[in-house]
């Protein structure tokens, strides 16, 4: 009724002059062909991508066109780092994927399941369970302890028993190195600790895909490492599919299977980290990477 995040589903009046989503098998084959040189991901035979973004467009207030034409495919277990200057639409793209923003046009398919277009709210909530999100500003629930934050989604959404949820919560808190802070309120934790709790909260839902929106940007430099270590562990040992918007070049180079560079609402360049960082094809990418240093 008044949930700001849910927004209204369905499309605006803007004309949808984009081609329809491709047939799943066909699309998988095409994407495979396109991506095989762009990612370090090891393709399985007949693997289908878990996220397919086709011609995604998003305008705010019917005028500011934030995403013009985004095309991106993410494979199961792949770690994709999204780079780009401020205002290039990285957050908007990420938020479109779990429908925190409603795409204006184009298609997003999760596990070959179209999520763009009018969806009943139950479907949307179901979908979001499979998409964990970690925010730049943590967004922990301040009235709950660290453990409570990790438990609430399990008990309320997954309807797990309290005991089960608690076991899981403590396990996830231990994984992020915060077992000893389980009973702390967010206000009593450092930014880095809060972000690790937020990661534990997302992971405890056992999503298929984790979305990170600049998870370390709000942190003091000395706290960044702890969070990145947790993310690296998730990627390397957890085999989690991750889309990470970040300015941490070192992390992207080491952990990412693929680096995506966005600018002006489109993906201008993507490829294996070493290729993009060392031999950027696009002028803007080179410029951006140069300025970042």
């Amino acid at each position: 009724m008044f949930n700001k995040a849910n927004g209204s589903r369905g499309f605006g009046t803007e004309a949808r002059h984009v081609p329809p989503a491709l047939d799943a098998t066909e699309a998988a084959l095409q994407a495979h062909e396109r991506d095989k040189t762009l990612t370090k991901h090891h393709f399985e035979p007949e693997e289908h991508p878990c996220v397919r973004i086709e011609h995604l467009m998003k305008t705010f207030d019917g005028e500011t066109r934030v995403l013009t034409d985004v095309n991106l495919t993410v494979w199961p277990g792949e770690v994709v780092c999204v780079l780009g200057p401020s205002g290039s639409g990285k957050s908007t793209m990420l938020r479109c994927i779990n429908l925190l923003e409603t795409p204006t046009a184009g298609h997003i398919l999760i596990e070959d399941h179209e999520i763009t277009g009018p969806l009943p709210i139950k479907e949307v909530n179901k979908l979001r369970q499979n998409l964990g999100m970690v925010f730049q500003s943590f967004n922990l629930f301040p009235h709950l302890t660290a453990k409570g934050n990790v438990m609430i989604g399990q008990t309320k959404v997954l309807k797990k028993s309290k005991e089960e949820a608690e076991v899981e919560a403590l396990k996830q808190l231990e994984a992020v190195g915060l077992l000893d802070r389980a009973d702390f309120k967010p206000a009593q934790l450092s930014g880095g600790q809060q972000q690790r709790v937020a990661i534990a909260r997302a992971v405890a839902m056992h999503p298929d895909i984790l979305l990170f929106d600049e998870p370390t940007s709000a942190l003091d430099p000395e706290l960044v490492r702890g969070v990145l270590d947790v993310m690296r562990d998730l990627a390397e040992n957890g085999g989690m599919t991750m889309i990470v918007v970040t300015h941490e070049m070192g992390f992207a180079r080491e952990v990412a299977d693929r680096v995506v560079f966005m600018e002006g609402g489109v993906v201008v360049e993507q490829g294996k980290p070493d290729d993009v960082f060392d031999h950027p094809q696009n002028e803007r990418t080179a410029q951006f990477l140069g300025s970042i240093g």
């Binding site: 009724m1 008044f2 949930n3 700001k4 995040a5 849910n6 779990n98 925190l100 709210i121 139950k122 909530n125 179901k126 979908l127 979001r128 369970q129 998409l131 964990g132 999100m133 925010f135 967004n139 922990l140 629930f141 609430i152 989604g153 309320k156 959404v157 937020a198 909260r201 997302a202 839902m205």
Partner: peptide, 12 residues
Amino acid sequence: QYEAASSLGMGH
């Protein structure tokens, strides 16, 4: 706070 709750799959 709404976004975090939504991203966990919570309804309104």
